[in-house]
């Protein structure tokens, strides 16, 4: 691919991009808006965690974290404007992460009874602690 045709493929350039620039130039206002959104979501995460929702607390925390991570990936990491292949590398990686966490989580639940029995028969040893003021 010659440089001329390669550059032509990027017709999503903002006006401010210099002629012949490689890649997409993010507008600074967009970047600031992304940061404000991320900070707002951080505040929401903290607030939601204060309320006792039982198991839903984990789901909520991971859900908001996923939204934040997607925003970082799409805008800060330029995936929105990037080659699709890079996007699929990320998605593929996440799929394997989900597979491993999910599979091992289910598997580990199957032998918890054995662990519990063993732990009851062999309690963890304790050792005396030194108060930090004594150091």
């Amino acid at each position: 691919m010659t440089e001329a045709t390669a550059d032509h493929a990027h017709h999503d350039h903002h006006d401010e991009a210099l002629p012949g620039t490689i890649g997409h130039v993010s507008h600074w206002q967009t970047l600031v808006k992304v940061l404000v959104t991320l900070l707002a979501l951080t505040v929401i995460t903290v607030l939601v965690a204060q309320v006792d929702l039982g198991r839903l607390n984990v789901v909520g925390a991971i859900g908001i974290a996923c939204v934040k991570a997607s925003i970082v990936a799409m805008w800060f990491m330029h995936l929105r404007y990037d080659k699709r292949f890079n996007f699929w590398i990320l998605v593929g990686s996440i799929a394997f992460v989900a597979w491993m966490v999910g599979y091992i989580l289910f598997d580990s639940a199957l032998y918890q009874d054995n662990i519990r029995e063993y732990r009851e028969a062999h309690p963890l040893p304790t050792r005396p602690a030194t108060p930090s003021g004594d150091h």
């Binding site: 890079n86 590398i89 990320l90 990686s93 992460v97 966490v101 989580l105 580990s108």
Partner: peptide
């Protein structure tokens, strides 16, 4: 960029081991 994305995909898998340990202990 392709090389960096492949590296980052690997980074997620690298951290995934620890997230799995977290999930297993938290779950149980």
């Amino acid at each position: 960029k392709l090389g960096v994305w492949l590296f980052l995909g690997q980074e997620l898998l690298f951290f995934c081991g620890l997230f799995t340990a977290y999930a297993v202990y938290r779950g149980n």
